[in-house]
Amino acid sequence: MGFGPFLLLAVMEGLVSAAVLALTAVGLSLVFGVMRVVNVAHGAFFMLGALVAWFVAGHVAGPPVWGWLAALVVAPLVVGALAALVDISVLKRLNYEPEAVIVATIGVLYILEQAALMSFGPDARPVAAPFTLRLQLPWFGYSGYKLFVVVAACAVLAGVWLLMARTRFGLLMRATQVDRNTARAFGINVDRVYAGTFALGAALAAVAAVLVVPISQVHYLMGADPLLLAFITVIIGGLGSLRGTLVAALVIGLSDGVISMFWSPTLSKIIATLLVALVLVFRPQGLFGAKA
């Protein structure tokens, strides 16, 4: 296979990575933007979404698409509900103090990972793809499901944009993001907005996980890489900036695809981390973040 087709394959792989990363990172960015909370448990919510997807898909009879569709509905609901519970029972009681919240979410991360290990064991578990369409190009064949992941992620991201820009809850989130005290002075129940935002962020991670499990596998430690990459994406894009998060996810996803294909996945992680260091030194607010 020549350089051109090889590059095309790398770009297609990169787009898949970027799509999943964008979904995961937008959830993290939303939570930080609205609540000023650094959610270290975000990767664990991703893992939990994948685990619920595996569980649900395994319990729905019929062709794989039924199980996968059920998982796409159930996993975000379960993970979102758990996240709301964590917000109400833990983060709110800590008054969202930044240091305390980081420690608390590290605790949530370990609890969820160990609960998954104790309940389902250390083995990686597959989830069948909802369909097995293969796209045959002149140079290589490519998974139709992977392309579907890109389209589905774009659709979900468009939905998030619509939610933020066109709905009452989005307006409440944006007002709370600007000034939570003034939001309260205008009757906004900030506690409810926070719980909803935390749930939404975790649900987006779960959706990303449901999309990715048919091309990956479910494992109790699978949240570590998405968490690291999501943090890198959010820092490069600008903390709390959804536009920046999307641009950074595209850059990191594509570079991950290309570098992994031509050199090695480890080199891609090294470069992404180096990029974060450079951004922190030369533009601490990120590419699209506002100066503090």
Binding site: R174, A175, V178, T182
Partner: peptide, 14 residues
């Protein structure tokens, strides 16, 4: 203490 990034209409809507 306006919601600065929001439009005039959105501030009123709140």
């Amino acid at each position: 203490r306006l919601f600065g990034p929001l439009t005039v209409a959105e501030n009123l809507e709140i």
